[in-house]
Amino acid sequence: MTEFSPFTAVIGQPFMQRALVGGLLTGALGGLLGSFAVLRQLSFFSDALGHSALLGISLGILLGLNPTLVLIPFAVLFALLVNLLVQRSQLPTDALLNIVYSTSLAFAVVALSLVTTYKGGIQQLLFGDILGISWLDLALIAVLLVAAVAYLLVSLRAQVLVTLHADLAGAFGVGSQWHRIAFILLLAVVVAVSIKAVGVLLISAFVVIPACASRLVSRRFGTYLVLSSVIGGGCAVLGLLGSGLTNLPSGPCVVIVQFFGFLLALGVSLWRRGRGRAALA
């Protein structure tokens, strides 16, 4: 009789295999986009987008539509609206985002309280259900990852210059405004597609933590981008395996692993700085 180890038993399950692939792709995608989002101070934007997505999900449920399908146009409209408000109003961006996301959250909770037919739990919306990810979801995330890599690769110069100095970018032929909007839209679609797996509360961790960890240890821009994706994807896989072995919630497990990855990067960064100072002394 063949004996299965707990590890083999976990990865032998088809739903777990889909979750691992989904985690790898979502983590890598979050890390990649997060690397620019963090530098452009869009971390809070992804958080606000995640929270506001609950309103999109509620609208989908109220209208009897697939929430994922409603979520993408909702996120795109939300991103464009917030961008317009930031451009036109004189208010600080963080205050404006706070108004928009807390209001959408309030509307979403009211809308959900009116729904009697919804079978899913609120916890699934808040923390995601990566174990319930389908092949269609995986295909969508894979297409998005390929599109994001292609866009960022061919426009790398533009992305870096826009991040560094908008006027410098403009003078050297980069359409700063178009690239800024295109990036925000891409981020919005990625957040919308990843919500099902990651949940509205944890999505910003997927965007922010791997990028910050990578920023701490990278000395080249190319390394920073690749490492951010690797940390994002790697932590997702480790977190999911840990979750499967311990029977703990998957989304939070991934974020906890990301946090430990961040602590490790912080340690490496501090150690390097200390070594640099010692060499100078």
Partner: peptide
Amino acid sequence: AQLAFLPQALPLQGRLPLT
């Protein structure tokens, strides 16, 4: 491509891990 511009400063230079 024949144009170049030098701004006063790059205020965000510290944010990017760029050599």
